[in-house]
Nucleic acid binder design. Structure first.
Length: 509
RNA sequence: GCCGCGUUGGUCAAGGGGUUAAGACGCCUCCCUUUCACGGAGGAGUCACGGGUUCGAUUCCCGUACGUGGUACCA
């Protein structure tokens, strides 16, 4: 028996940017392919009209790489079924459109945009706000169904522009089995005669997917639920052109919703969270859309949060690595309904992954962040220890600046306001003496630093607790960071004494 | 309007004829910690509505409502 190869396809949008829903579609493609020993194919749907803007294609592959999803075949990777850019495979579409006309499943339509507009205006009623080009009106329009053979030939000879439309059958129920939704049915007569081939000779998506999927031997096609409504057109095309037996299995993935409706680029700006995988600047207007990467997300967390937005393995497990996802992913546990994106939960995933991963996995990224803030890392071991010490309190990667910066650089400003109200002479005295005892400490470690602190406090008759906050602020500048004595231990004797002395001056002015 | 798809706490969700209807995020209280986190212990909060079917429906069926997508020579 011949084993059918699982091939999945992903067609990124030509407008640039790669949003959450897009990445999740790719992810489910990827997981499904990997799980079933199939291939993960990326095809680019660029057309003459909606041409990719500068850099958009490269951007998509950068995002995929960041997420750890490398295609088996793509425009940049090549494979047995190229080309993988729609713009490079124009020729065959025209041929198939011709075939459809010949068989009587499609027809030429010569209507100008103005005529179409007029038709819509004429038939528009309160009950029918947007009239379709369908069985009700097609005989009243200018096409090869309503005109005589001679008239059509004449128009063709004259080079009058035309499109090719599918002729939707009447009294026909079109149904198919969606991998996620199960049996879905449509009444064919209610669907409009979609344009298959545009006046410029380019195919619309409808023709292109079907032809490409056939030529590229796609067995499973994943796409967003917004395509479900046009599925009957695709099914029909398969039936007419290649036979239903050859048709891939469809999976229409639920949409990812924003606070109001389908998640859009605008939601990000409006509610302050990223919607793209990585920063994307539209070269046409220089508009920047923020990405998860630059916001400070780890790819592991990003993949994880996306995977479980609309899918789970049925257990209580929420944290999944890519390997675990491939292991436990199953298409029948993907939800039917859309899920609202929750940025708070997204941050929680990142927090979990920061705690989970060895710091060396993301040390380089942190180093870059710190360098931008003029903090230079020279001692790698020291850096690693610092990261280890503070990672529990970092949710997004840039948080490491506040949490770790003072290990490398004296605080520029210290929060004297928090200690001044309760300050007095005896505290000044305490810290002066404490510096002395630190100086003569035989060993520099957490226990020694803490003990001498407490002993001196007791001797002075001050509660150690009252002195800890000032000490912290002297060392780090504010009310944050790990245990004070851990910090002192880390930054070393000289620096500790130096910072206390400097702070004492600030406090006593 | 028409067509499609959906509907378990604020959000993500498990479950699927008899359950005290899991768990997570967020929120609140307490413990730990005299910073903030982490960690630990608790708390508030849910099966959209109406009809069936059934001894029994959150679960099955039908309506309604609501949400969402499509209704382009865009994808």
């Amino acid at each position: 028996m011949l084993q059918k190869k699982v091939r999945v396809r992903f067609a990124p949008s030509p407008t640039g940017g790669l949003h959450l829903g897009g990445v999740r579609t790719v992810l489910y493609n990827y997981l499904f392919a990997k799980k079933n020993g199939g291939e993960f194919i990326v095809r680019i749907e660029d057309t003459d009209q909606t041409r990719f803007v500068e850099g958009a294609e490269q951007y998509i592959f950068d995002c995929l790489e960041w997420c750890g999803m490398v295609p088996d075949e793509s425009p940049q990777q090549d494979g047995d079924y190229g080309p993988y850019r729609q713009s490079e495979r124009k020729a065959s579409y025209r041929k198939y459109a011709g075939e459809l006309i010949e068989k009587g499943f499609a027809y030429y339509a010569f209507d100008t945009p103005e005529e179409l507009e007029q038709m819509r205006a004429t038939y528009k009623t309160d009950n029918n706000p947007s009239p379709q080009y369908d069985r009700h009106v097609r005989m009243k329009m200018k096409n090869s169904l309503s005109l005589t053979r001679e008239e059509v030939q004449h128009l063709l000879d004259q080079g009058v522009g035309y499109v090719v439309r599918i002729k939707m059958p009447e009294n026909d129920i079109i149904s198919f089995n969606d991998m996620i939704h199960g049996l879905v049915s449509f009444e064919a007569g209610l669907v409009d005669d979609k344009v298959l081939l545009k006046a410029d000779g380019m195919p619309t998506y409808h023709l292109a997917v079907v032809v490409d999927d056939y030529l590229m031997k796609i067995t499973h096609a994943f796409r967003g639920e917004e395509w479900l409504s046009s599925a009957p057109v695709h099914i029909l095309l398969w039936k007419y052109l290649f036979g239903l037996d050859e048709m891939p299995q469809w999976a229409h993935l639920p949409l990812i919703m924003g606070p109001s409706g389908k998640l859009s680029k605008r939601d990000g700006a409006k509610y302050g969270f990223p919607v793209f995988a990585m920063n994307w600047t539209d070269p046409r207007n220089n508009e920047l859309t923020e990405g998860f990467k630059e916001k400070g997300f780890l790819p592991e967390a990003f993949i994880n949060l996306l995977a479980v937005l609309g899918w789970n393995d049925g257990s209580e497990k929420e944290i999944f690595s890519m390997e675990e996802l491939i292991e436990s992913f199953s298409i029948d546990r993907v939800h039917k309904s859309g899920a609202k994106f929750d940025f708070e939960k997204a941050k929680w995933f990142n927090h979990e992954w920061i705690k989970l991963l060895p710091v060396k996995t993301y040390a380089a990224t942190i180093k870059t962040i710190l360098t931008e803030k003029n903090i230079n890392i020279t001692d790698k071991d020291y850096f690693t220890q610092v990261l280890e010490l503070v990672k529990d309190r970092c949710v997004l990667l840039p948080d490491f600046y506040e949490q770790a910066g003072y290990f490398f650089k004296s605080p520029e400003q210290i929060d004297t306001a928090s200690i001044l109200p309760k300050w007095n002479e005896s505290k000044t005295a305490f810290f002066k003496e404490y510096c002395d005892s630190l100086f003569s400490l035989p060993e520099w470690n957490v226990v020694a630093i803490e003990n001498s602190f407490k002993e001196l406090a007791t001797a002075k008759g001050i509660k150690p607790g009252e002195l800890q906050l000032p000490m912290r602020i002297m060392l780090v500048g504010g009310k944050y960071g790990p245990g004070v004595f851990d910090i002192a231990n880390m930054i070393g004797k000289d620096t500790t004494i130096q910072r206390i002395n400097k702070a004492l001056i600030d406090i006593n002015v």
